[in-house]
């Protein structure tokens, strides 16, 4: 699995290799290197950079709200998947999204082949316990709705790959002397089919539950 470091170094890594390939003189070592690196570059470039919001070509080891290991997204292949992004210090936006999705879920004609996945935008503070409480306080049945977190670097590279814009902001001094921060973020909700193809996108805060449940119902 690629880590964040190799992703962020990618631009400086790609440029000199391209020059080498286009150059007229080339020794054996260079050809070998090229033969090895070209496919790797292609994977990195097309897999990592050209994706639009919600697609992923890599897998991420995450943990759900019960502490179970989840390999995202491969563990969900074969199921309809509804992916959203939240964090438990989010007072308003994430709750509008979560509440809308819960309503959509209750309207589904058949719900046992659909999994809802909410990925944290704040892996630093959102541990398994926080995510479980988030679900429990809202009365969300987590049988087919998983709240995922993981090591900061893993979650961050997943969010980066999903092109999810976010920024830490609104930092307050907490009563206990610590730092209380919030995260500005985009609010996409993405529907994947059983093969992992993206079939629909919604804006979480403007989400119409009827549209979401209909889109899920219509998927084979």
């Amino acid at each position: 699995m690629m880590d964040t470091a190799s992703m962020s170094k990618q631009p400086t890594f790609v440029a000199p290799i391209n020059n080498g390939l286009l150059g007229a003189s080339r020794n054996v070592w260079e050809s070998t290197l090229a033969a090895f690196l070209l496919p790797l570059m292609a994977i990195l470039f097309f897999g990592g950079c050209s994706n639009s919001v919600g697609e992923t070509s890599r897998v991420y080891k995450l943990t759900d709200e019960r502490g179970r290991t989840v390999t995202f997204p491969s563990d969900y292949r074969g199921r309809k998947l509804v992916v959203s992004y939240i964090y438990t210090h989010c007072p308003d936006v994430c709750i509008v999204t979560t509440t809308g999705l819960e309503k959509a879920r209750k309207q589904l004609a058949k719900s046992d082949d659909v999994t809802f996945v909410s990925i944290t935008l704040d892996p630093r503070r959102d541990d398994t316990t926080a995510l479980r409480q988030y679900a429990e306080l809202r009365g969300i049945d987590t049988k087919n709705w998983h709240f995922l977190t993981g090591p900061e670097s893993t979650v961050d590279s997943l969010l980066d790959e999903m092109s999810l814009v976010r920024r830490r902001s609104f930092i307050e001094q907490s009563q206990t002397g610590g730092e209380l921060y919030f995260i500005d973020h985009d609010d996409p909700v993405v529907l994947w089919d059983r093969k992992g193809e993206i079939r629909a996108r919604f804006k979480g805060t403007e989400l119409n539950p009827d549209d979401v449940s209909q889109a899920i119902n219509e998927l084979p």
């Binding site: 007072p91 308003d92 609104f170």
Partner: peptide, 11 residues
């Protein structure tokens, strides 16, 4: 809540 730079911001 305000929308800014493609993100929802709290002010």
């Amino acid at each position: 809540m305000v929308e800014q730079d493609g993100m929802l911001r709290m002010r």
